[in-house]
Simulated scan of single mutants.
Amino acid sequence: MIIKNLTVRFGAFTAVDDVTLEIPPGSIVGLVGESGSGKSTLARAVSGLVPYTGAVEGGDPRRIQMVFQDPSTSLDPRMTVGASVAEGLRLPRTARGPEVERLLSLVSLPAELAGRYPRELSGGQRQRVAIARALGARPELLIADEITSALDVSVQGAVLNLVRSLRAEFGLSMLFISHNLAVVRYVSDVVAVMHEGRLVETGPTEEVVGAPKEGYTRSLLEAVPRLGRG
């Protein structure tokens, strides 16, 4: 999938400014930048949630799924886990139960959680449910917008490992968004650095982390203790 010359304006304010970015099949592209850099606005534009100019080419817009930062707000509290996961399935009703169980197993959740409500789950479990629901649509592109930042540090690593295993098992293409360059480095093949609505540096992860060309990228690296050492 290729994002071409994508621009998002809110009145006179330009939130995303002429961004071009390729997300190769089966790869994870990490989009990193400080709060307010335009990362989430770009994600919402690619998902069709905000209007934009430019183009998103090479995929079916209906098969772009987004997992949001806070699972407690992205899941309907009145729906059971099973109902939430089944909501987007294009299957006969009789086939939905087994598919929900399969999707929950993909994110390492037991089938019995299908009858529970989001309030009965931990933050990490809720985020896994949100990922399972997105996978149910069989996405060509999964957009993960700060999916670990609302979680306790103790469960962040487990969710990141889940992201890596899903890519390895299914060849899933993903745009992984975070303000934390260490997190992006752990899961991504390519890193794109965003600042004030523009991409300022893009390249293979170890090149960007090991020999950044832009001062802004170096400042993000310096904000992460011991990144790249050992």
Rank of each mutant, 00 (worst) to 15 (best):
I3G: 03
K4E: 15
G11L: 04
A12C: 00
T14V: 15
T14C: 07
D18H: 12
D18L: 00
V32R: 11
S35Q: 11
T41V: 14
R44W: 02
G48T: 06
V50F: 08
Y52E: 01
G59H: 10
P61G: 12
R62P: 02
I64D: 03
Q65Y: 08
V67D: 07
F68N: 06
Q69M: 05
Q69V: 02
P71M: 06
P71A: 04
S74Y: 14
D76T: 00
T80M: 03
A83W: 01
E87G: 06
G88E: 08
P92N: 06
T94L: 11
R96T: 03
G97D: 14
P98K: 06
L106C: 05
S108N: 12
L113G: 04
Y117W: 08
E120G: 00
E120L: 01
Q127H: 09
V129Q: 01
A132R: 03
A137I: 02
R138S: 13
I143Y: 07
A144T: 09
A144N: 12
D145T: 07
E146L: 06
L151M: 10
S154R: 12
S154I: 10
V155R: 04
G157V: 05
G157Q: 09
G157I: 04
G157E: 01
A158K: 11
V159T: 07
R164S: 07
E169V: 07
E169Q: 15
M174V: 05
H179A: 09
N180W: 14
L181N: 02
L181P: 05
V187K: 07
D189M: 02
D189A: 00
V191K: 01
V193Y: 11
G197D: 11
V200W: 13
G203M: 08
T205G: 04
E207N: 05
E214I: 04
R218Q: 14
E222A: 15
E222V: 02
A223T: 08
V224H: 08
L227M: 13
